[in-house]
Amino acid sequence: MMLLKDEVGMLRRVPLFSGVEPAKLKLLAFTSDRVSYSPGQILFNQGDEGDAAYVILSGTADILVDSETGQIKVAELEPNSIVGEIAILCDVSRTATVRAAGQLEALRIRKDHFLRLLKEFPEMTIEIVRVLADRLSHTTAELADARNSKH
């Protein structure tokens, strides 16, 4: 069975948390719920209100998006990946459905807990802002590339 300290190791490998102190990650893990899903079980549905983010510890999950022809799979989640993190940072509903592809173990980080941690430990917030800003600059660069190649 995976212990708290192993979970901390897993969290460190998630880019969003890689710069955060291990002690804080341990608190994050402790206050999060360890949940297991059987194959086919839904983590959350598209359109639901987002109340938690999930870090996949073992197993894989499918990301599905509603379309006119039914749900289509757009991506697959591997261990050490995080899903639903946007929903716990701002109030948007889920943009996709996530379903366990096999036996899945995950760490559920509740929105209110996560926000409390950010408030309590500014250095953790800064690390996360850094990651998000990085992502944004990547996205912006990609967008610029895309526009340039169009012209």
Partner: peptide
């Protein structure tokens, strides 16, 4: 103590 000593005493995490 390692987990919680940094938190203020009225913090909701203590419920955990």
């Amino acid at each position: 103590i390692e987990l919680f000593s940094d938190l203020p005493p009225d913090h909701p995490f203590f419920q955990q």
